[in-house]
Amino acid sequence: MEYVYGTAEIDGVMRENLKVIGGPKLEEGEYLTTVREYDDNTITDRCRIDRHYLTAEDEDGTKYDFYAISEHYRYIDRTKMLDETNAATEIAFVALAETGGIDGTTAGEHKNLFEEWQAGVSYKVGQYRRYGEKLYRCVQQHTSQAGWEPDKAASLWSVAADPAEEWPEWSQPLGAHDAYAKGAKVSHNGKHWVSDVDANVWEPGVSGWSEAKE
């Protein structure tokens, strides 16, 4: 059965009408609710059947019934379209972060968008994964395994900046890709430090850092 809503001239007056393809005839005064599912939305119509005014048949023998309707209400649910749009946006965000288009701090603000770390997966440099309460960035291509969890394998993973943690624990950078920027804040040896320079790979207390004054 198929329902097509439209308008037509009925008894000399333009009115809303309903074309029904197949199925039993509808009764005068009956309230009809139809739901049509599409890829990007769902359309729900509800109307009152005022009267049947025409029956027609095409060359294939398909019968069409036409009804004058009133009290027509239509609701369009675009949740599916929004869900698809949001999913596409999230995928684009992750892809941009993993190609270097988004910094670690911004990635950390949305860490729930990234997948959790798993053993037995081939990881490439730049990929982000969640582990525990932190977001990590792969700094060396490898196939993960038990014992190489991000919080244990500093040569494979670096902690992405987490805005919820003002003074994250310092970890030794392996190169320019995970070096600290000027103004970066870290904790090390029980103290708080602020980076004095960009591309900082030095250990706090040795060079390139100033101890924060509380």
Rank of each mutant, 00 (worst) to 15 (best):
V4N: 11
Y5F: 15
I10N: 07
V13K: 12
M14C: 03
G23N: 06
K25S: 15
E27I: 09
E27H: 02
E27R: 05
T34Q: 01
V35S: 06
V35H: 02
V35Y: 03
T44V: 15
R48V: 10
H52V: 04
L54F: 08
D60W: 04
T62W: 00
Y64N: 07
A68Q: 14
T85Q: 14
N86T: 10
T89V: 11
F93V: 05
E98C: 02
G100S: 05
G100R: 01
T105R: 13
G108C: 08
N112R: 03
L113P: 00
E116S: 13
W117H: 05
G120Y: 01
V121N: 01
K124D: 14
V125H: 00
Y128R: 02
R129A: 14
R130S: 04
G132A: 05
R137M: 15
V139A: 09
V139E: 05
Q140T: 12
Q140F: 10
H142K: 00
T143A: 09
S144A: 15
W148Q: 11
P150T: 06
A153I: 07
L156D: 10
S158Y: 06
E165R: 00
W170Y: 14
W170I: 04
S171D: 13
Q172E: 15
A176T: 11
D178K: 00
A181T: 04
V186I: 11
S187E: 15
N189S: 14
G190H: 06
G190T: 07
W193T: 02
V197C: 03
A199Y: 14
A199C: 07
W202R: 02
G205A: 06
V206H: 06
A212G: 00
K213I: 14
K213G: 12
E214I: 07
